[in-house]
Computed example of a mutant assay.
Amino acid sequence: SADAIASVCAPLDLAAGGHAIGRGFNRQVYTRMFLRTMVPKALAKLAQYPGLFDRAALLAARDLHAFDDLFTAPLHGFRDADDYWRRASAKPLLPAVRVPALLVNARNDPFVPGASLPRDGEVAPAVTLWQPAHGGHVGFAQGGWPGHVRALPEAVAAWLADHAALG
């Protein structure tokens, strides 16, 4: 078992993140980039397991919801993308966390909307939330975290060392 854990920029609410990636600039750039990397992997899985999913429908997918609906969800035993996004999200489980846990999320992360981030009353006492206003998606060196590019890793490592000693 872990003495302490840390998470940096994790999509705690998959539906909120999926919708954020599917809109505006994110859709034009990141959705396309993600699909360009994920579709070939899905097609390789289809070659391994013929009939696993509808190839034409997957090739027509234009967002992560459609991709997850056709591939990710059924492959992992979920009914559809909405079921997957709901049941695989960590946010609803945070009140039950018993191990010291640090969650670092910038409030301006384009993939993890600030409004979807948990608040103090929504997590167990063992959970520490660090939610700076700036930092983007793991971009804390550009002003969201003080100091050099190593400032965030060093701060997280120090937090883990302090809390592991308590466990």
Score class of each variant (00 low, 15 high):
F111A: 08
R87H: 14
S1D: 12
Q131K: 05
F67N: 11
N108L: 01
P125I: 01
A161R: 13
V29L: 13
F53M: 07
R62W: 06
C9D: 08
W145A: 02
M33P: 12
P50L: 03
P95E: 03
A158T: 04
W85T: 02
V123G: 03
R32G: 15
P113N: 10
V156K: 00
P110C: 03
A2Q: 12
I5F: 13
G24I: 02
P40N: 13
P113E: 10
P153C: 07
V97Q: 05
R86P: 05
Q142D: 15
R87M: 08
G77T: 05
A155C: 09
W145G: 01
H134T: 13
S1T: 11
C9Y: 03
G121T: 12
V112Y: 02
D83Q: 09
C9V: 14
A155I: 02
L46E: 06
F67K: 07
V138M: 12
R107K: 12
G114M: 06
I21H: 05
L166F: 08
R55N: 07
L160P: 03
I5T: 10
V138H: 04
F67C: 05
Q48E: 15
G17W: 01
S7D: 08
G147V: 07
G18Y: 04
G114V: 01
D82R: 09
H76P: 10
P95Y: 02
P153D: 06
A124Q: 07
T31E: 14
A165D: 11
D54K: 07
N26I: 05
A15L: 14
V127D: 00
G24V: 06
H76V: 06
